[in-house]
Every structure is written in structure tokens, then in C-alpha cells.
Design a protein around this nucleic acid. Structure first.
Lengths: 334, 334
DNA sequence: TTGTACGCGTTATCAA
DNA sequence: TTGATAACGCGTACAA
């Protein structure tokens, strides 16, 4: 391991001078600078990041806490994050959360993030205690697809999304609309699901449609559960003419169920997803498109800004989802 | 920031003793230990990882260099990686490669990886110079889905995969078999594609089927290109009765093309993918299943081992892909 | 068993 | 413009 001492010695200068050259400080005689640079080259000297961090209190890396980072939504957010990050020349440390234990773990102690200059939390609502600690300890932190009053949060308007989806179906003439929502996973506080439900209710009551509790169910955010719930709804005495889901992946399950049951989409049943994953496009699934990549980009952009000027106020930024109508939605047969 | 000095002072002991308690060294009087622990608790002391790294020369993190980490294959490998890593209590630093420039960048200078104790390279073939430097500088490095003689490499037998796929079609009675392979992306040396082609040739020549160069094409690893190439092959004067692709995602494009052209699968055309992504299962696509998650797990396992005992020999580990027959392959109509 | 002092590799301060 | 030296926070020989 060659150190700055070796460089200084070989160049015949003091350590201070060597450091100045390496960090492009002015006030070094060009000739001296040249000598040092040659020594650096000769010795293949690379400054130790660790030692630098020791002094500067900066690591040059940012952390991202994300649940189930293998899911399409999270992946796409990460893609946006990554783009901004690599442009800024910073490293990405990934903290994956697969269960409540890990969640607790990460939100229990800020000292876990010493190797990181800032924190982006995706799809996870940190407890207030954590949020406060971030402020106290001056750890720049931004929330994406989650909300906490103490931290700058970037959210998609899930009420709006639920409303848009429901509204489309109502406008098409549907009256009995089923809603297969996602569930709150452990203590993850996926309020997303609740907000979408609120949007659903708003649209329904605006249209003065009565609310049938049998038509509103929740299940895990996956295909199999979506299928199961669809089977349940579609075998009711009075089945719905349209089904809304909390995620595209659940909607795929619904489509599977219809295929098996010989129900034609959209003639006999309209299906509406949520998220706007690639698969939705592939299957022609109507859906609510979330600006996933944009969320990642904006979130990381914000974080980098906050790392420069740590004293910024917490702020709530709302992005709008957009309706994408494809081929799984139509008017009900009379 | 509270340091170990503060703890020592409050506990009324020397710094050495405080350190011993914190690191669970023996030879500390229980009573003294107790006093120190109380001080730690009281002051909410957390040792600085940076300072520790300074001494120990270890960071507790491992790096993963991966191209296009948002693709299903890479994601699934990462999932395996992540699992092993979190169990080992180590941090994951992600180095994403989206283009040749970044690839060059990462493979040009090991000093980029100072904040990491080991390196896992996924789907990327590092130049020999890089591999040698890893050994010289004692940077434990493992390759997954890539090969270099100087580094322990974990590969799936792509020849075998190409062979298995082709063989299935031949056994079903196909004679004119099209092959839509993936291309080498930039200088990424995706030899995977070549190996699969070799397997294809072997199966063909074993069966004494003649090789029609018009039926073997390459395109980007995506849906749209797959579709385009399928249209090309299927409008030949003598179109193939079966199409093999270099990846499932290309096969999806093929299926799109057949749907638009009114060609029935598998009655008029057999389609065979490669990879075994989730979507393949969903669409009933026959494919070659790669043990993606296992590759991630094994690779990271190996890496952790190598980080313990750095002197291990480079080794080539071959995993076998498996054939999964679903509903897109059948015998050709006579 | 305990405390002191040095080293890790760098940056920053200050006097020359 | 330059060089010596003090931090930075910790681990660890070594002495007590």
C-alpha cells in the first residue's frame, strides 16, 4: 500500500504539498506540482477513501432502504435512483427489507448507516422516532412512495388513482364494481391501499352508487391471491361486472381466473389494474400508471440537494398517476 | 459525536479497557465491564465504522458489479446474492453498468472498490488485466454468469442449454428450426449467445439436419426486436416450423408476431424461450430454466468464503440448465 | 487486569 | 509557497 508519505518522499516535498497537489489546491508552484504528479503516477498512488472519510465525514455513498427490491415497482424506482446517482458519481448501498424484523432493524438505529451520506426510503413508512433522529443527527433523508410529516416525502396521489380507475368504470356504465385491494403487509403501513380505497369510495358515492361490502376484499399483492379473490367475487350470487385491483400483478391473477372460468374480458367482465408495470402493457391491461422511474429520479435528486444544504424544510411532493385505458375495460352488456 | 474517550472518561477507565469491553474481549473484570457498558448505554455510544475500517482494513460491505440490474435475470441473481448477504450481516454496494463507458470505468481501476471487501461480477467478462490486479491486490472476486481463467467463475452451461432446447424440437420432429439469438452488446462479450449457438449446431448436426443460415439471426435482447425477427423468419419462402430464441423476452416478441400474423402456437409454430423468467410460466412458454437465484446464492457464498481464506485457487463451477416444456412446443403438422 | 501511547492515511492549520 | 504537526476515532501492543 503506497501512501501519501511515499509520494511526498519520492517527490522530495512535504506531505502537505503532496496533499495540495492531489486535491488540486492552488498555491503550488507548477514545477513542484509536476514533480508530485510524476511521483503519483510512478507509485500508482490512490488516496484512501477511508482515511478521507475519517476527516471529511463524508463517504460518497448514499443508502436506499427498499422492501422487496425484486418487485417491478421497486425495481423501476431504483432504476431512476441509479441514473441520478451514477451521474453524480456516488455509490449506491442497498438495504433490502423482506420482513418486519429487518424493517425494525433498519429503523431502530441510525448508526447502521454510517457508511452513507444520505438515505432514500422507498415504499416504507418510518416511525416518527426514526424521522426525528434523522433530523437530530443531520442525516439527510427522503421518502419515496411513503409519507412522514418530519421528512420530505414524494408520493403518488393514491386517492386520485383509486378515483380515476373507479370513475372510468362508472363512466362506462358499470354499477357493481368489485375491488380486490392489497393488504397492509405486516406493519409496513402500506397506506397506499387505504388511499386507493378512499378514492374508490369517493367515486362511488359521487355517482350515488351503493356500496356493497361483499365486493370489496383484500389479499396479498400477488397473482395467486388475486386469482383466488377473483374466483370468490365471480361466484357470488350477484357477481360484479367490473373488477378493480390494487396492483397489476393481482389483476393478472384475475385474468387467469376469468380464463379458467370461461368469462370473456372485457365483454363479460372489465378488469382494471394498478401500477403500470411492463406486463400490463403486454397483456393489454387497463391500469393506473404510476410515474415510477420519475419518483426514483426526483427522490434522489432531492436527496442530493438536501445533502448539500441540510437545513431544508420537510416538504410533501405529490405526483399524479395517469389513467391508461387498454383492452380489458368496456361497457357492461345490458 | 460521542467517542470512545467519552465512554472511558465517564466509566472512569482507560481507553483500552473501554475498547476491550466494546469488542467483547475477555480479561476485563465483570464489575469494570458493567461500568463501561452503562456508560455506553448512557452516552448512546456507537463505534465509528470508518475509524474501525481504518485499522482493520475491512469495510463489512461487498460490491456487486452488474449490467442492467433491472432485467429479470440479473434481478433474480441479485435476490440470491442479497439473501446470503443479509444473513452474513454485510452491506451490499451496487455498481450498475449500462454502457461500455461504465464498464471500462469499473474494470480500469481497483481503487474504485476501496469501500468493499470483495467483488461479485455478474454477467460481465472482465479483461485479464483486471483479473490479475484482483489477485495482486488481494481483492476477492467471483464471477457469476461470466468466465475468466484467473478468477473463480460460476457459469451455466449455455452449450448444454442450446443443445437441450434444439434437441427437444428435433425429437418432436421439427426439421426447419429458426434461431433468434441475442447479440453481443457493445464489448460486453456475452459469450452466452455464442455458446447457445454452438449447442444448437451440435444438436442439429447430431440429427444430421442441414443448417440453413437464413434461419439463424441475432437481435437485441428485447421483445420488439424478437418480434421483428420473427416476422422476418416467418415470411421467408420456406418458414421454419419452430423458433428458438436466446431469451424468454425475445420469445414473447415472437408470440406477439404469431398472434398478429394469425399463426397458431404450437400447432403451426413451436416456440422455445431461454431463461425461465416468471413471464414464461405465465404465458405457458417452453423454455430453458437457468438457476438464477442459485447462482446468486452460490456466487456470494463462494465470495464470502474467499474473503475468509484469500489464497484459494480459481475454479470453474458449471451449473446445468433444465428443460421446461410447457404449451408452446409440439410436433409439427405433417 | 488495566492504562498509555502509537499507528492507520488523510486533511487542515499554522508558522516559516 | 512550503513543511511540520495536530487532529480524526479506533484497535492494540506494551508496560504497569
Amino acid at each position: 500500500m503506497t501512501t501519501i508519505r511515499d509520494v511526498a518522499r519520492m517527490a522530495g516535498v512535504g506531505i502537505g504539498t503532496a496533499s495540495r497537489v492531489i486535491n488540486n489546491h492552488p498555491s503550488v508552484r507548477p514545477e513542484t506540482r509536476e514533480r508530485v504528479m510524476r511521483a503519483v503516477e510512478e507509485l500508482q498512488f490512490r488516496p484512501s477513501q477511508i482515511a478521507r472519510s475519517m476527516i471529511s465525514k463524508r463517504t460518497g455513498a448514499v443508502g436506499v432502504i427498499v422492501p422487496f427490491f425484486t418487485r417491478y415497482f421497486q425495481i423501476t424506482v431504483l432504476q431512476g435512483v441509479q441514473e441520478v446517482l451514477s451521474q453524480a458519481g456516488k455509490e449506491l448501498v442497498l438495504y433490502n427489507v423482506e420482513n418486519d424484523g429487518q424493517r425494525e432493524h433498519y429503523f431502530s438505529d441510525l448508526s447502521l448507516f454510517q457508511r452513507v451520506d444520505g438515505l432514500l426510503v422507498v415504499s416504507l413508512t418510518p416511525p416518527d422516532a426514526f424521522a426525528r433522529r434523522c433530523r437530530e443527527k443531520n442525516m439527510p433523508t427522503i421518502l419515496v412512495d411513503a409519507y412522514n410529516p418530519f421528512l420530505t416525502s414524494l408520493v403518488v396521489d393514491n386517492m386520485e388513482g383509486g378515483y380515476l380507475a373507479t370513475r372510468l368504470l362508472i363512466d362506462k356504465g358499470h354499477q357493481r364494481i368489485g375491488f380486490i385491494n392489497g393488504i397492509i403487509e405486516g406493519n409496513f403501513k402500506f397506506n397506499q391501499a387505504n388511499d386507493r380505497l378512499i378514492g374508490f369510495h369517493r367515486a362511488m358515492s359521487e355517482a350515488q352508487l351503493l356500496f356493497d361490502p361483499n365486493l370489496v376484499v383484500s389479499c396479498a399483492w400477488n397473482r395467486h391471491e388475486g386469482k383466488r379473490m377473483a374466483q370468490q367475487l365471480l361466484t357470488l350470487p350477484e357477481p360484479p361486472t367490473a373488477i378493480l385491483t390494487g396492483s397489476d400483478i393481482q389483476a393478472v391473477g384475475v385474468l387467469e381466473a376469468t380464463r379458467e372460468m370461461g368469462i370473456c374480458v372485457p365483454e363479460q367482465l372489465s378488469v382494471m389494474g394498478y401500477d403500470g408495470i411492463e406486463l400490463a402493457e403486454l397483456l393489454g391491461l387497463s391500469t393506473i400508471q404510476q410515474p415510477m422511474q420519475q419518483m426514483g429520479e426526483m427522490g434522489m435528486q432531492r436527496l442530493l440537494e438536501q445533502m448539500e444544504q441540510p437545513q431544508r424544510e420537510a416538504e410533501l411532493i405529490r405526483l399524479k398517476p395517469t389513467l391508461i385505458e387498454r383492452t380489458t375495460t368496456a361497457s357492461p352488456v345490458q
